[in-house]
Nucleic acid binder design. Sequence first.
DNA 1: TCTGGGGTCCTAGGACCC
DNA 2: TCTGGGGTCCTAGGACCC
Length: 421
Amino acid sequence: MIALADCNTFFASVEKVFHPGLKGKPVCVLSSNDGNIVALTTEAKALGIKRGAPFFQVKDIIEKNHVAVFSGNIMLYAAMSKRVQSIMRQTVARTESYSIDEQFLYLDGYEEHYDLVEYMRGMVEKIRLWTDIPVSVGIARTKTLAKVASRFAKKYKGYRSVCIIDSEEKRRKALSMFELADVWGIGHRTYEKLVSLGVTTPLQFADKPGDWVQRHFHKPGYQTWLELNGTPCISTEEILRRQSISTSRSFGEMISSKDQLKASVAAFASSCANTLRSQGSSAGAVSVFACSNRFREDLEQYSNIGTAMLEIPSADTLELTEAALKIVDDIYRPGIMYKKSGVILSHIVSGTVQQLLFDPVPNREERVVLSETIDSMNHKYGLKTVRLAIEGEKNEKWKVKSEHRTPNYLTELSEIMTIKI
DNA sequence: TCTGGGGTCCTAGGACCC
DNA sequence: TCTGGGGTCCTAGGACCC
């Protein structure tokens, strides 16, 4: 059996940990630039606010109902996620982190010694006690069914945080009651297609013959069908190394100058390079994109992306930034109001490359040491303490707005919580 | 006024090879 | 009249996920 442990309304739950007065109150968390709602508690959902809605469109409801609003603080959520996931790893030997708020737990062998439901309830209780984060667990033969079960665990109090699908009757009952569009792997397009073919519940889909499914859908659809019928087929391999790393942001205000665009791209390139080094790999290609504001029909629209291949894969901030800035020269067009830019690293390989005879970077090994030194200084004294001058100062026009951000209580010494007694 | 960010996998089709 | 067949590799774009 396999379990999916899922934190309930995770970002909102983390905010509630640090604002205990909000228990039972509606809470919303915003995306960067305070643009959209990305997480909300059930109390906020009950007011008619939907995940993904632009903030300004629901501002009235929020003010009228005194909904607590927070700018998303991913550093804080990541730090909390680490704590929750480590408790899960202490409970089950083999686990697989699927996202910031979800982890698969492989329960093979545990059923011989434990009642699985009670064992998972014990873990949920420990997480609640140690971190104050509410978690729901679904247990089933496959990941897709475990996801279904976890939704039931979250929705119905009677399950006391853990729901198991361990018989054919339970499987059929669960699939007949579940929303087809909510099945893992069935997105908007697949849902529409299934409905047009007369399939409206997960059970109807699962009961279709296999060759019917293969005829109408490709591999992903067929895999979902197998999983719903109890045959595990979604890979259990852990993704050890990412295949691409990207950083992009919408700007606080639109910009038109090349220098400002370069400043943003330099900052994103250096952030990508950081992530790259932290996982011990190098990138063989750098891409940069920039685009205008797609919502402003009154302005000229423009969007472009350029890619540079490096002769030798690199994890050097200076080299990657230089390559990114050259791309800006190619794709920049004057007279455009830019709203967003981004950097994508790809062709990622593990490790760093030693100095080569015909190396375009003459002192490659020293440069690696330089990057590592900067990393350790920033680790000790705070993010971006040492950075490239071209990245610019704080409060530049393009930098993001986050007006309701909770301090980085868990990761920045300067922002640590103080308590007056 | 105001509209997110970071990923993965799959497939079709083009380019190229013999 | 009539223009092969089989294969690989790469990439853009679609679909999906949180």
